[in-house]
């Protein structure tokens, strides 16, 4: 919130845009830098972070802005991925599904469909989950995500436990998505678009209502706002973003499996949001970068990196409030409210 408030003045707004432009230029140049320093694997890592940042940013809309502690975000992410996987499978075999020829390997077809279908799943399960609140909402979103997990495990026609292989990335006209750096730029493009959309949404009338709901549902009712439809809309948009991320990840990894919607993945999305600072727009991206970076570093060091990450997480929650910014404040010796 704070970083958005400061963009009201024209002077600071132009400075914000300047910072964004510089960061974007650096991100766009990343594949060249990776090559130059002899670390081409960095591009693939950056692609993953970019994709997960989309997923985290969309969870942030629900969790950070609207206060909906959804523990099932990976479900929509997984559904988005499965849309790509299933359509690719049908594209290869040519089999129709329910009489419809649904196969496609075109990103411009699969991506919108993934977003749509993830949104539909979020609509149905969100409509049920939002009848509860508080700790029940946490439990029920987790449980529904687990239900979808089991569904895809049992879905032997699409690989079940073993998942689906997407042998070739979905294609785009005029662009070679099979090239690593190119695919990174494609993902970066979608990430920029998604973050731009989020930045509009959070300052819109709709976004103001979400902020109000997080701070006090009672107040919102007292000014005549029925909160349920707004929470549901927020939940659906959040699910759609996760679907986009899932579809991009399915193409990046060229593999889809129920593990993508495992509850630990939901937990990781939450950690990214909290690390970056819930309710700050770009925090989700920072959180994704830090968590994935940290995991990669620890994993390179020991196979049992979670023995270190787990306690780190506990310490972070106990001793810092507000994720990384809280950590910075703590290190500076400032007060920790």
């Amino acid at each position: 919130m704070a970083d958005l408030k400061t963009t009201r003045g024209p002077a600071s707004a132009s400075r914000t845009y300047a910072v964004i432009a510089i960061v974007l230029a650096m991100l766009a140049a990343l594949p060249f830098i990776a090559d130059a320093i002899g670390q081409p694997a960095l591009t693939s890592l950056a692609t993953r972070i970019t994709i997960l940042a989309i997923g985290a940013a969309s969870l942030n809309l629900a969790l950070g802005y609207c206060g909906l502690v959804s523990f099932g975000h990976a479900a929509w992410y997984g559904v988005g991925a499965y849309v790509v996987g299933i359509m690719y499978r049908h594209y290869v075999t040519g089999d129709p599904l329910l009489g419809l020829s649904i196969g496609s390997d075109q990103l411009l077809v699969t991506l919108p469909l993934a977003i749509l279908i993830s949104g539909l799943f979020a609509l149905v399960l969100g409509a049920l989950s939002l009848r509860t609140s508080g700790v029940q909402f946490i439990m029920i979103t987790l449980a529904f995500a687990q239900m979808l997990f089991f569904f895809f495990v049992a879905l032997k026609a699409y690989g079940g436990d073993d998942g689906l292989i997407v042998r070739r990335r979905n294609a785009l006209p005029f662009i070679d998505t099979r090239d690593g750096p190119t695919y990174y730029w494609v993902c970066l493009f979608f990430a920029v678009a998604w973050f731009a959309l989020m930045s509009r949404i959070v300052t819109s009338r709709f976004g103001r209502v979400l902020e109000g709901i997080r701070q006090s549902e009672r107040r919102m009712a007292a000014i005549g706002v029925s909160t349920y439809p707004y929470k549901l809309a927020c939940f659906v948009i959040s699910g759609m973003g996760a679907g986009l991320a899932g579809a991009l990840m399915a193409n990046h990894a060229r593999f889809v499996s129920p593990d993508m919607m495992h509850w630990t993945q939901s937990g990781e999305f939450m950690i990214m949001v909290i690390l970056g600072g819930a309710g700050t727009l770009f925090g989700a991206a920072a959180g994704a970068a830090v968590l994935i970076g940290l995991e990669t570093q620890l994993a390179a060091w020991t196979e049992h990196w979670q023995v270190i990450l787990g306690p780190l997480l506990v310490l972070m929650i106990i001793f810092t409030r507000g994720g990384l910014s809280g950590l910075v404040r703590l290190l500076r010796g400032g007060r920790n409210e």
């Binding site: 700790v135 946490i138 979670q306 023995v307 787990g310 506990v314 929650i317």
Partner: peptide
């Protein structure tokens, strides 16, 4: 609840890997 969920999630990672 969010802090509680995340901290105890950290505990799970720790206990499982341990």
């Amino acid at each position: 609840h969010l802090d509680q969920v995340l901290a105890t999630f950290g505990l799970i990672l720790f206990f499982n890997q341990l």
